[in-house]
Write a protein that binds this DNA or RNA. Structure first.
Lengths: 222, 222
DNA sequence: TTGTCCCAGGTTGTATGACAGCTTTTTCCA
DNA sequence: TGGAAAAAGCTGTCATACAACCTGGGACAA
């Protein structure tokens, strides 16, 4: 098994640096281009490298796509239940919201407010798809505001799987009032983060997840 | 971009099921074997498929290797600090230890005790490598005992990266007494989990992470 | 001088054919 | 019937070829 990661390490490559071409690698390692290429593509699948037609491979930054694909697959093959996934999300986000309250920038505060505003509008227009996108973005903004990129990657990787169950929650929250209340809950989280009140932010996030949990349970999701 | 994942979905494949051969896939999708093979290897890199010489590709179960490789790479390219990684570990493990206290089996309780015993012995023999392996295993047992495989995967993913910083903590805990105290701390966690006292287990885990944090800080790790 | 266009060379993407080595299946003999 | 040997199937690797694509640099015009 050819491991290009050693190459990245040995050459002290940083994010954005380019690697040798497939032919150069093959010659350097004494293997065929086929094998060199496969090794590169393996790391590209992990998003450790960024490859593209005609351009050399580059060392890539952190993204959530890889873990997202794994989560998706793991859930799909029934190795994970919705409740188990929500438990992990809750654990992570109880921390991110607390850190976000401590570290948020002015721009992030602004972004949270805009997202809430957009959600409220979308609910009035009865546009669930738009509400969902903004809902997911809301959580991602908070994760980013935590200042810890690992939380960002982890929370973002739930996006694909959240999109698959989100509509269940929406339908289960049948009434317009119930949906508005859900947005208000997001608003309480945002307000606490903006006012940099970590304890209140955590409490609001707990309320949010507990409420979602109840809704999913009543809808018969396991 | 050829996506074999759709194939897994459309054929309702489950963990352990075999996929068509590279040639069959190529014919089926109207592409060359080269491309079919690359698509398979891409999923193999994510550990979504399990491939092996001479044998057909199989749908794989959840492992921590993928996320582990990503964490390793992300930390290596300086996108993550030790403190940030420890923060995420702490967040996850505060929850796993609580769940473990609630769900632990008799076997898991036994395994925890054995691990502690082994750690104490290894400390007496002044064998840090062995202490480290048991330390890491201790946390993995707790994650497994949580009953949520996603926590297991996440906690296990930190193994590679923990191995790289663990020795700093060991050396920073210069005295024999300090090292024994660290094991005792593990023991308090284990006892609480075995007695199914979730609150005490959380408190002991908090103490453990806070202590490690202080040690690393004093050692000048950022 | 400066900005734009174009082109040549380098690089990746895909296809084909070949063969060694490993695994699974089938066949056949004791 | 049990087990060994042969056959078939599959993956791993290599070499070659060419299309598609990107990048940098030079020619050219404003």
């Amino acid at each position: 098994m050819v491991d290009i990661r050693n190459l990245i390490r040995d050459n002290r490559l940083r994010v954005g640096d380019v690697l040798p071409s497939e032919n150069a690698l093959a010659a350097q390692l004494g293997i065929s281009r086929t094998v060199a290429r496969e090794a590169l593509r393996g790391l590209a699948a992990l998003r450790i490298l960024e490859v593209g037609s005609g351009r050399r491979a580059r060392v890539a930054g952190a993204t959530s796509e890889t873990l997202s694909a794994i989560l998706d697959h793991t859930a799909y093959t029934r190795q994970l239940s919705v409740v188990q996934i929500q438990d992990v999300r809750r654990t992570l986000e109880m921390r991110t919201v607390s850190l976000a309250a401590l570290h948020r920038s002015a721009e992030e505060a602004q972004a949270l407010l805009q997202t809430i505003e957009g959600m409220m509008e979308a609910v009035q227009r009865d546009n669930p798809h738009s509400v969902m996108d903004l809902d997911i973005r809301f959580h991602e903004i908070i994760a980013r505001a935590s200042g810890n990129p690992l939380y960002s990657v982890l929370v973002d990787s739930f996006r694909v799987i959240t999109r698959q169950t989100w509509h269940i929650g929406w339908r289960a929250r049948g009434s317009h009032e119930s949906r508005v209340e859900n947005i208000k809950c997001h608003e309480r989280i945002a307000t606490a983060v903006i006012e940099q009140d970590a304890a209140r932010a955590e409490a609001a996030m707990a309320e949010h997840f507990d409420s979602s949990f109840m809704v999913l349970m009543r809808a018969g999701v396991s």
